[in-house]
Structure formats: C-alpha cells, structure tokens
Amino acid sequence: MKKVVYGLIFLLAVIHQDVWWWDDNSLVFGFMPLGLFYHALFSCMAAGVWAMAVKWAWPSDIERWAESADEQGGDQ
C-alpha cells in the first residue's frame, strides 16, 4: 500500500501540469474559472492522498525510535 501512496503522490505532481485546458476561460458553476476550479479540486485530492499517506505510509519506526529514551547528545 505504501507504494500505491507514493505512486499517487507522483501522479499528483504530473496532473498538476494541466496543459490540456491552458487557454480555456469558461466558468464552472457560473463563477469559477475552469483552471482555478481544477486546481482547487487538486488541493482536495492532495489532502486525500496525504490522508492515505498518514494511514498507510506513516513512519512508525521513526516515531518509536524518537520516543524511546531521550538521548541528549547534540552539539549545543
């Protein structure tokens, strides 16, 4: 599932380049320019994919390691 999530993130990066309606200035719902509507929808899709990443690609190992006994060793 992790690979699917990373694949979807890559897909989002690709479909962000929406050249297919580059010169289309028609309005969706009577007020929203098509290009803007698509990218607003893109923001929602991004949130959805990140929700999937949290569910299926969460770095639990890192979290466990960090929250094990603290080891203050930084060069401070």
Binding site: A46, A47, W50, I62, E63, A66, D70, E71, Q72, G74
Partner: peptide, 26 residues
Amino acid sequence: SSSGLIHTACFFLVGIRMWSFGKKYG
C-alpha cells in the same frame, strides 16, 4: 495547489524525521 503537495511532502518526508532527531538529541 503546488504548495498543497510540496509543502506537505516536506512535512511528511523531512519534517517528521527532523523532529525525531530534535527529540532524540535535543
């Protein structure tokens, strides 16, 4: 819209790891 993807990728892929080092090593 690019920030919705890229910012969040930075939080998810880099931010959590940076936090873990901050937590572990102060």
